[in-house]
Design a protein around this nucleic acid. Structure first.
Lengths: 163, 163
DNA sequence: TAAAAATACTCCATAGGTATTTTAT
DNA sequence: ATAAAATACCTATGGAGTATTTTTA
């Protein structure tokens, strides 16, 4: 995975760009975005500088997309939709989260009883963060690789597991 | 096209998140990103706040992805790759740009001679911005819908056309 | 005790706002 | 003359850095 893929160009740039590309009018696009006109001019200019290409042909009469602008519009719409889907996915990932539940049990239950008890509720437990505490003494880490656990532990530490 | 799809969550957040998800160590991830550790902690916390979900399970011993974190990792990688491709596309859109060329001609040439002359060089002219000036008097707009032009104009104004 | 993440603070870059100027018809 | 974008300037937010504290094995 590349690290610094994007020196510039953020999602805001693209949102602003798409709004302007659709309105073809700085004032209206700014209003639609809930900002004033000057910052929009600046952000568009910044995006053009970042991409090294002119995106709009400005005239008093009208604002028109350049060839590069049309290309970016296609891509920007797709990318923004993609970003929107990521948000939705994450919203779903946290859906149903209602808080934390603390359970006390002997360590051996982690292998047998607990999965047996919670297993049937798999569908209602989307994201279960398990924090295992053995007594309150603080012990050493213990391997617990069976029963669907990646690892388990003792001594007030925790593991994550999707049941 | 939705306007404010992302109140928060920008590409930087995702880059930082991916780095940490792969390193599972704030210090190493920060080094890899070329920043120091505290801002990385803050940005991850900000992202978790923005998404309303815990992405990492922190312990002194190790940093581990939560279930939500694993989900986001898949999506974040895809989105960053997508963003990278957009950049590449735009880099291609401006490739070969070397400056501006001013041509003088009579208006009728726009329909006949100019396309005939420039047509063969289509491959070398990726993005041609045409600014048409009729004399220096300033005239009225004129329709010029043939010969592959979307529109043409007079009076020191301009149109864009990919030849 | 030591290693690692979080916190506190400071600084600077940047996004946004208002007012004004420039531009082109 | 006018409508619209650009520019100037100011403010505030937020990202990054250094130093320090907290945490837990």
């Amino acid at each position: 995975m590349p690290d610094a893929v994007l020196p510039d160009m953020n999602l805001r740039h693209l949102r602003y760009f798409v709004a302007l590309a659709e309105e073809l009018h700085f004032g209206r696009a700014a209003a639609r975005l809930g900002i004033s006109q000057p910052p929009l001019s600046e952000q568009i200019a910044a995006l053009e500088a970042a991409l090294g290409t002119r995106l709009f042909q400005r005239t008093r009469r009208e604002v028109a997309l350049t060839s590069s602008g049309r290309t970016l519009y296609e891509e920007a719409v797709k990318l923004l939709l993609h970003a929107g889907r990521v948000r939705e996915v994450m919203a779903g990932a946290r859906a149903g989260y209602a808080g934390q539940l603390y359970l006390g049990c002997v360590p051996s239950s982690l292998l047998g009883a607990l999965p047996a008890i919670l297993g049937p509720h798999r569908g209602r437990i989307g994201n279960l963060e398990v924090r295992v505490t053995e007594g309150h003494t603080g012990g050493s880490w213990r391997r617990c690789a069976t029963a669907g656990w990646t690892r388990a532990s003792s001594g007030s530490t925790s593991r994550t597991r999707r049941w």
